[in-house]
């Protein structure tokens, strides 16, 4: 069982747990996840949202939607949680080096993409244009806003944050994130794209990226399925020929596009 260093409430229903890594934890790559365990309640797969180079804390940005996450929400600096990990295939950061990068996030989907941003920033010159398009529900639901806007102002990562609806006081963009892909300036053949959000948002986003001329195999999506054991043994995250916990959660869009467009598969 691991110590919780800190709990931070990010928005009304999203919080971030900062957990001390278990002894011997090997570190993680952007896009990987941990299994967090609350005794008496169960385990949940939670993507890691912090800086991969920070070996003192494992950040997990969590939306309280299930039994386990609802309990995690009540944790504080005096509590413990079980941590197993890291699991899963990470984002193809190496493949993005020397190329333009388009990162598209929807809702809590920004969480597993933030480690990509930290990694890019640690060696910014190694990448071409880097665009982040991030869609949230309302301005109050935007995660990591200060950090993202700081990177934007410094000219490190060109960022568009858009919301589905806003009060008149909001001066930013309103509209779905897919609408903004057309404006992104990249060399399509030489661009890697990473998308994380609800499946339908990923499908439409991928469609826009394809229209832009980015090859299908250079587009990557992060899939969500029921992950129980994280070791490809329990059968729950089975997705066509894949186990999402082992073969994903990050997939090439070209490998999963037909399965994604089959309802309830």
């Amino acid at each position: 069982m691991c110590d919780i260093n800190r709990r931070q409430q990010d928005t009304e229903d999203v919080f971030t747990l900062d957990i001390a890594p278990p002894p011997g934890y090997p570190g993680f790559a952007p896009g990987q996840f941990n299994m967090l365990y609350v005794p008496g309640v169960g385990e949940a797969a939670i993507s890691i949202s912090g800086d991969p180079q920070d070996s003192y804390r494992l950040l997990h940005t969590i939306r309280a939607v299930g039994d386990v996450t609802a309990q995690l929400r009540n944790k504080d600096g005096r509590s413990h949680v079980g941590v197993r990990g890291p699991f899963g295939k990470p984002w193809p950061i190496e493949a993005a080096r020397g190329r333009d990068l388009v990162i598209v996030a929807g809702g809590i989907g920004i969480a597993p993409l933030r480690p990509v941003l930290y990694t890019v920033l640690s060696d910014r010159a190694a990448y071409g244009n880097v665009h982040l398009l991030y869609g949230a529900r309302t301005p109050r639901d935007i995660l990591y806003q200060d950090e993202l806007m700081q990177w934007h102002r410094q000219g490190e990562i060109s960022t568009t944050i858009t919301v589905d609806a806003a009060k008149p006081s909001w001066k930013g963009d309103v509209g779905v994130v897919t609408r903004y892909i057309g404006r992104v300036r990249v060399d399509p053949e030489n661009t890697v794209a990473m998308i994380c959000g609800p499946e339908i948002m990923m499908r439409y986003t991928a469609g826009e990226l394809l229209l832009k001329g980015i090859p299908m195999r250079q587009i990557h999506v992060s899939m969500e399925r029921h992950m129980k054991c994280a070791a490809a043994l329990c059968g729950h995250c089975q997705f066509g020929p894949y186990f999402v916990c082992r073969d994903g959660p990050v997939f090439r869009y070209s490998d999963v596009a037909p399965l994604m467009s089959t309802a309830e598969f």
């Binding site: 005794p39 008496g40 169960g42 385990e43 129980k228 054991c229 329990c234 059968g235 729950h236």
Partner: peptide, 18 residues
Amino acid sequence: TCFCFTTREEADLMNDEV
């Protein structure tokens, strides 16, 4: 050959042992 399993948590009333 079907192998799927899930997990269950069972606590005593005091939640001392799970």
